[in-house]
Amino acid sequence: MVNMLLNGLQVSVDEGMTVLEAAKFFGINIPTLCYNEGLTPYGACRLCLVEIGEPGRSKLVTSCTYPVGEGLIVRTHSERVVKTRKLLIELYLATCPSSKVIQDLASEHHVTRVRFRPRDEKCILCGLCVRMCAEQMQGKAIGFARRGVDRKVTTPFDRKSEECRLCGGCMYICPACQARCQGPREEKPICNACLNLSQPCLDYFDDAMCFMDPCVACELNSGRTPKSERRNNP
């Protein structure tokens, strides 16, 4: 057991835990997008930032990767953390506005404005699908390609991969493509957006990504033509 100071409280936790796990254990809610209990921490979404160290010499670290340690001082909701976190959520919202997960995060954290030019990205590159495929499904069928703003999740050479066993794990875990909010419709005063969810994966992940044939999402969403039929009858 190690002793640490969590938001001003002296707590003692098991050695080998991460700060995020410790905070969860004590009921402190830290938002995450790229974290999943069953997968290796990745530290890419930056939402789980916490402030560590003495005030004045503190720094922000991702709690999903930072190990607990004797005498560690952690603040999960300091002004600096909240300010940075809110700006990151605002950035997510500007980049991927149609994800219900992100919209929910925004309302939970009182992000009420977006000052950046909106774009509609389909993928937030959290890497959950890649880790799911490799670690839980032993598939290693998908991975990242290219870098920076061109980075994307794909199969080798963008071709249908023989390693893929069509298990659907990647789709199951994706925070962006499970359910997409279509946003308020102009003619209707009530949003109803949560009743208007549909799957975007069909358009975006056409050849490279969607190996589900017939696709689970298409089956669920009877309003769309299943992928196999679309391909045969364009």
Partner: peptide
Amino acid sequence: LKSESCGKCFSCREGINR
């Protein structure tokens, strides 16, 4: 920096872009 960012973490990829 935009063309050299690896794109792994969101704040760098999207932050530099914005």
